[in-house]
């Protein structure tokens, strides 16, 4: 797959700039994150992570059932 070189360079520069600004403006990052989480989906990160952990939990429960000779 080919991407135009100029556009790829611009994208790389934009990402580097964003990474640099993140280091230089930690207060702004914290404020924006708090605002974004509050307005878009408060508490969603913990919920989604819990779903992720639950996937493994379900697997362990199924394996425990198999070990006990269950269905």
């Amino acid at each position: 797959m080919r991407m135009q070189k100029t556009r790829a360079l611009w994208l790389a520069a934009l990402i580097l700039l964003a990474a640099l600004l993140r280091l230089l403006l930690p207060g702004t990052v914290k404020t924006l994150r708090a605002w974004a989480e509050e307005s878009l989906a408060p508490g969603v990160e913990e919920t989604v992570a819990a779903w992720g952990r639950a996937l493994a939990g379900q697997e362990e429960r199924v394996q425990a059932l198999h070990r006990e000779g269950g269905p």
């Binding site: 990160e45 989604v48 992570a49 819990a50 952990r53 996937l55 493994a56």
Partner: peptide, 24 residues
Amino acid sequence: AWAASRLGTSSGRDWLCLSAGISL
């Protein structure tokens, strides 16, 4: 999601569990 969840819980890496949830 299944693989990340297994790896995340066994290695204690919370970000993998988050990734599993996002993928789900």
